[in-house]
Each structure stands twice: as C-alpha cells, then as structure tokens.
Write a protein that binds this DNA or RNA. Structure first.
Lengths: 338, 338
DNA sequence: AGAATTGCTGCATACCTATGCAATAAATTT
DNA sequence: AAATTTATTGCATAGGTATGCAGCAATTCT
C-alpha cells in the first residue's frame, strides 16, 4: 500500500538515491550493470516516479491547462480529443477546466496557476487583459483557440472567419439570390463578429441589405430565428448561419412549415461538424481547418513553453467551402451568364 | 517573474513560514490581526500556493483522473462537462486522458499514477483486471462509468441497459411488429452486450427471431447496417439500435431509399442525445439518466477517496423510454385488442 | 505570588526527486 | 612510478508547503 520511492530502491540495492534517479533517467554516467539492476528492481517493485516531487524539483510540471467552454457543442469535443492525444504523445498531461460563462474563465485561472501549468490553451473563450497580464507575469504562455483578444495581448490561432464570411457571401451572390439574412451566434465573440461583418460587408458592397436575427450558436436559437424570418411574407432566400448547429435548427424550422431547403431557400453553415454531412441535412458549409488549427496552436504553445516566451502572435487559417445540398443550384440563366 | 512563495511573505512580514501557512489556511490559532496582515500581503504580492509542494506535503493531489474514450460521440462531452464542473465546485481538479482504443487504457494508467491522482474515473472504457489490481495496490479508487468489469473487480455505475433493452422490446411488441432486428454497437462492450441480450431474450420469449447486424456505435455503421437490412425483401419493420447515432444513421439510410420511418419501419435508439430530438429525426429512444449517473459515480468515487477504500460496488440506474415519432403508432386493431 | 491555563508563534522536519559538486577507484599516459 | 584522465558513485541541497511539538508571553486560577 505504501508507495515505493526511489529511496526504497536505493536502500534495497545498497546504493544512493541519486544513483537510482540517474539510472532511471538513463544517465550515461551510470555503469550499465548498475543501470540494469536498478531498472529491473524498479519494475519488480512497481516503482512509479512521483510527478509532484519531480515538478517541484525541476520547476516543470509537464502540465498543459486547457480551458474550454461550449464543450457540448459538437465542434469542440473533437478539438479536445485531438489536443489531449497529441499532447500525450509529446509527453504532456492535460489539466482540464470547463466553463459555461465567460466571466468564469478568470475565476478558473488561479487554479491553473496553483498547479504550475507550463502552458495554457483557452478554447472558445476569451481572457480579460488583466488576467493575460497575470499569466505573463507568471511566465505562463497562453494561446487562444478560435477566439482572439481585442487588445492582442495574447497569442491566438483562429479560423479565418472573415475570409469564410466572404466566401459564403460570394458563393451565395453567385447563385442569384435576392434577399439575404444572417443568423447570429453569441454576441461578443470574435468568431461571430468576424463571420457576420465580412459577410454583411461583402453583400452591401454588392448592393444588398442583410437582415439579421439574433442567436447564440445553438439549435434552439437557429430554429427560433428561422421561424421569425419565415413569419414575414418577403422572407429571405439566402441565409448564412453563425455555425452548423444554428443552421441545422434553421433547416428543421423551415421543413416544419414546408419550406424546401436547397430550392426555395438556401442555408449555409460554418464548421462542418459531422452532422452537417448527415443525410437529413446535407448542409453546405465552411469547413474549419481543425487539424491545422490544432497543430498550429500546439506548436505555438509548446514553442513558447520550451524556448523563450514569445510575444503576441496571431495566426488565421483559411477554411474551405464544402458544397452540399442546402443551397440552390445555379439555374441555367445564371450558368449561361457566367 | 520569480514566483512568490510563502517564505517570501514570511520574510516580508518578519514572521515564520509556518505562521504564514497557517494564516492562509485560516487556522484559528493565529491571531486575527496576523491573519489579516498575511492575507492582505498575499493578495498584494499575488501569492499563489504551489499545488505540487502542497501535494507532496499532504500526500493528497486533489486530482481526479478522467479517462474517456469515444469523446466525440455526442453523449460523452456532456458527461465530461458535467463531471469537470461538479468536481471543480467540490475543490477537485481533473487530469484528462483520452483514448481511442481499448488497449491503450492500460498504457495510460502509469501516467495517472505518476501524478498521484486521488481517484480515477473511467468512462466508456474498461480496465484489465491486472491494472485494476495495480490501482488497488496503490490505493487509488476507481469507478467505471457506463461500463463494468466482467470480474467485478472495480466499482461501476451504469445505465440499466438490460432494463432498457427490455423496455424497447416490450414497447415494440406492443405495437404489432412482425420482423425484429438489432443493429449492434462495438462488440466486447458491456453496454452493447446488455442492450442486445435483454432485447433479444425478451423477443425470443415472445416467439420472435431477431435479425442482427454488426455495428460500432457510429453513424456510418448504422447507415451501412440499415442498407444491408433493407437489401432483402422481408426486411424488418422494427429495429433497435445500440445507440442514437447508430439509429440516426439507420434513419438516413431508410430515407435515402424512400422507406418511411415511423410508418413503414420503426426505429428505436438509446441515449437520448440532443440530436434525437431534432426535427429531422424525432427519434424514439431510451433516455440515459445522465445526471443521476454522474452524481452517483461522483459520490461513489469521492466517498472512496475520502473515507476508507470501499470494495467493488455496482450501481445500475434505469433509463426511461421517451416516445417520439420514429415508431409506428398503435393501429386501431391493436388498440382495441389491448 | 506562585501555578496552571490559554493564546500565539517558531523550529524543525517530512514529503520525493533532481542535480551540482566532490570523492573514489580504475585506467591511461608520460 | 608518478601524474593525468576517465568512469562511476555518493553527498548535500533545493524546491514549497504542512504540521507535530516546543517555546514564550499573557492571562486566569488557587
């Protein structure tokens, strides 16, 4: 029951604890024979190094904190899984923090600091500049995932949401729609702001107004927003939704009143979550370059952890439009024209 | 940049480190004045206790390890989020491990042990009896979530899958179907075994055969399995799927070939994930009592952590059938009969 | 006033590992 | 054979907190 320590091994073999420690870390200076003896006994006695003691000694916890909100939105579990398995493969452990509301992120940080995380990754949540400063004072590098700070005080990697919004606008413009709308995500997220503003700007440049409905990145919000849109006689025929879940809600709302998606009305999402490809929805959407975003943020973070702390650093990775069936096909007139 | 420690506080105030430590933990023996002075300075200097050092000293890491597979299946993110936020509220931190394949769970455990986790929760994955023994030798309590060990060597809380299977069988039997099928989940999971055997047994008792198609808890598997089922002329009219995702795949496959779900064919799932309620699917399913399962497993685990390590302990919590539109309604004849 | 109690604080050490430096023994060089 | 180098190991300490026990001053009791 009592944990076996390196001292136990040392006593058992009649050697010093330091030799044991070095033998177990394959230090070249230890005689091969001794090394093997130690490693063999360690195995036999079921020795497990104490990471706490090691951290204390080395001043490195080998811990990466991940704080994530919206964990139940289908996009993020994939991110979380990839992150943790890649970190594990690289020898890091992950300390997980979840939060619903934005304001709680700040409350969580002291805990991150207590556990001496070597680095911090914040997904789909932001960071007060006060806390960003605290972290930097402690020398804990942090990168934001899919969100960036207004004051650019911390590094971040995002999907190129502005580019994505433009892509959608152009795509819809190219297939002769006449009344455009946007169903928003949660306000005060850079994600929503960027997708909306770029989409809207582009359409306005082309001479169109765009109707706007509030939302919050959920199915229910998408459903309700679509109902509102359909309540008027001149309801839109081209709708960009802040994310896929919202779009799916919108599709279900349209179907419920017999409006045909992909012929009478076009709907585009953002993310390309697995459900977007499901037969019932077949949603045209912008695919977030998740793998690239994950790799990039990991690289950024670990570099900062291992080398010198780098300054603020923003990286935007473009998404790609994946065409499915929720947008009107080009009619012959438009085709001839192009 | 240099972290401020309790020693720094002590020096600054000209008192001993032990007094600082006690003052910060609100030890009654410390004079109120001193306590306040210390706490005030701690705040001012931005003191953060070092959890590593504390763990080393107290022999308690306040860490709960969670290992989870199938993180991307929609059921588990919810579980993970609930678990972490409840643990946080109770003062615990969570060390997250994810794994795809079963065999990797064993490889992960040494890491759990290195970090001195006070307890371990394994979701949707199992544990070799060898490792269960190792853990118990280390005195680390473990509870399995939604999976249980064949040899009952570790505690577990599960949905009552057998009860659920029976519920489905009875429900389908009650609405005059004639050809039954089961689309399986991953083999070698207690979840799949229990759902299947109870369902099948009940139907066989009632004199029916049940056709079986392999699967693995995914949309694609459900889709493919349904295609196989529909390939024959006497395809089933009542299908129980190992989980909701599988059922949704099956529904899409049926729709693709024009088979009407809820009238020509009945499909029932298991889990009641949010998508089951989506308009396009409207899936009748067994709702897992997630909250109760989470609370129960947490209670079980934390009790074992804080008190004496308890022996093996199994808990099965019944699910409830939620009726939606994917099953044939009772026709008048059947209704008259009952 | 002396004795006992109470209130508050400090000393010393445990927890476990990693690592700079010194020490010893063995091998090599001159 | 003496001097230098190489190989291997041990000593001692840092890292930050918690805590049993002792110490001291102030208060209360007899």
């Amino acid at each position: 029951m009592a944990r076996v320590t390196s001292v136990d091994l040392a006593q058992e073999l009649g050697i010093s604890q330091s030799t044991v420690s070095r033998a177990l870390s394959n230090d070249i200076r230890i005689a091969t024979k001794t090394r093997e003896k130690v490693q063999h006994l360690a195995l036999k006695m079921g020795y497990t190094p104490n990471a706490m003691a090691r951290s204390l000694s080395t001043q490195q916890s080998k811990l990466i904190g991940i704080v994530m909100s919206e964990m139940t939105s289908p996009f993020y579990p994939f991110v979380l899984e990839k992150l943790t398995s890649k970190l594990h493969a690289l020898g890091w452990r992950v300390l997980l923090f979840s939060t619903d509301a934005q304001h709680e992120v700040d409350d969580l940080l002291p805990l991150v600091l207590e556990y001496q995380c070597d680095g911090l990754l914040i997904a789909s949540a932001s960071l007060s500049s006060h806390m960003a400063e605290t972290l930097s004072r402690h020398g804990t590098p942090v990168v934001l995932f899919n969100r960036y700070a207004a004051d650019a005080s911390s590094s971040a990697v995002c999907c190129d949401n502005r580019g994505g919004g433009r892509l959608v606008a152009d795509y819809l413009l190219g297939r002769s729609h006449s009344r455009y709308a946007y169903i928003a995500g949660r306000e005060n997220t850079s994600t929503n702001r960027d997708r909306e503003s770029s989409y809207t700007t582009r359409l306005e440049q082309a001479g169109f107004m765009v109707q706007r409905e509030a939302g919050n990145f959920t199915y229910e919000a998408g459903f309700a927003a679509m109902q509102r849109l359909l309540a008027h006689s001149d309801s839109p025929d081209a709708i960009f939704c802040a994310n896929d879940i919202t779009a799916i809600g919108a599709i279900d709302a349209a179907r419920e009143v017999g409006v045909k998606v992909g012929t009478q009305v076009s709907i585009v999402g953002f993310d390309d979550i697995p459900m977007a490809a499901w037969g019932a929805y077949n949603l045209t959407t912008i695919r977030q370059p998740v793998e690239a975003m994950i790799d990039s943020s990991l690289q950024m973070l670990l570099e900062a952890v291992e080398n010198t702390p780098l300054g603020s650093n923003l990286r935007f990775i473009p998404g790609v439009l994946v065409e499915r069936g929720s947008v009107k096909q080009i009619n012959t007139k438009a085709k001839a024209k192009s």
